[in-house]
């Protein structure tokens, strides 16, 4: 058993809307996996189920030999600390400097009293600086996060995730808000990091070209099911087109505004991103 993450028959519904209808996937270390699919296909839900930002309705998620779907409280937080996450909107703490934002990646490992004192060990501050150095941002360490450009913010976001020393890296549309040049830089860095550290990296993407360029393995998700799985070479144009076919109608027919409002309310996680993106 070499896989870091094993997902079996994962299901999730929001009211009438079935976001995931039985997804079975295994992930190995050192591999860069890209999930493609139209809006509402369940990409975001899938990735968020893994670290339980979303609670699945059924199925199994085995990460590092722990059943994520059964964990609660401190045990869940402990596992989450081992999973780095990168967001479309970076989600940095705006009024806090870059260095502190990166060090937030250690919060899951620190006892409360230590983090309250802001007493990060010197070795971790050093490591944060090294990570920033890798993405060329060490000279910006005292800048406030909200003064950076989008591409820079995302690189800080990656540093925060890597600060967790994760086994698994989840990225939810990491380049959707970036210009093409910054997107290249971010994808390049993600891929490189995955190889260097032997991580397992799962990235949700919209752009098929980026998936083809960077992925070791592509997964096509459509209407909550895996419809394609293979190397970039095996993803033909026809298959790619098919993944995105008739996607709009499914969303519009099944997910009403009221559904979305309730989902946001109940899950406290906006599915809006999936719908609007």
């Amino acid at each position: 058993m070499t896989q870091v993450l094993s997902v079996c028959d994962l299901r999730k519904r929001y009211g009438k809307f079935e976001a995931l209808r039985g997804v079975d996937l295994d992930f190995e270390p050192g591999k860069f996996t890209v999930i493609i699919g139209p809006s509402g296909a369940g990409k975001s839900t899938f990735i968020r189920c893994i670290n339980r930002m979303v609670d699945p309705d059924g199925g199994e998620i085995v990460f590092d030999s722990a059943h994520m779907e059964q964990l609660r409280g401190a045990a869940l937080r402990q596992r989450r600390a081992m999973i780095g996450m990168i967001f479309q909107h970076y989600n940095l703490v705006a009024r806090t400097n870059v260095l502190r934002n990166v060090l937030h990646g250690r919060l899951g490992y620190m006892p409360l009293w230590k983090s309250l004192l802001g007493a990060y060990p010197e070795s971790e501050k050093r490591r944060a600086l090294d990570l920033l150095d890798e993405v060329g941002l060490s000279d910006q360490m005292y800048k406030r996060a909200d003064t950076l450009s989008g591409g820079q913010m995302q690189r800080v976001g990656i540093c925060r995730a890597l600060m967790q020393a994760p086994k698994l890296l989840l990225a939810d549309e990491p380049i959707a808000s970036l210009d093409p040049k910054s997107a290249e830089v971010v994808m390049e860095h993600l891929k490189q990091t995955t190889k260097q550290r032997g991580l397992c990296c799962i990235v949700n993407l919209h752009q098929v070209e980026f998936a083809r360029k960077y992925a070791d393995r592509i997964i096509g998700l459509k209407a909550g099911r895996v419809v394609f799985e293979g190397s970039p070479a095996t993803l033909s144009d026809a298959v790619a087109r098919d993944i995105y076919e008739n996607a709009e109608s499914r969303l519009e027919n099944q997910l009403t505004g009221a559904d979305i409002a309730r989902i946001e309310d109940e899950e406290r996680v906006a599915l809006c991103e999936t719908v609007a993106a």
Partner: peptide, 8 residues
């Protein structure tokens, strides 16, 4: 959400 994901 971001800090939740770090296990904080």
């Amino acid at each position: 959400e971001a800090l939740q994901a770090t296990g904080a």
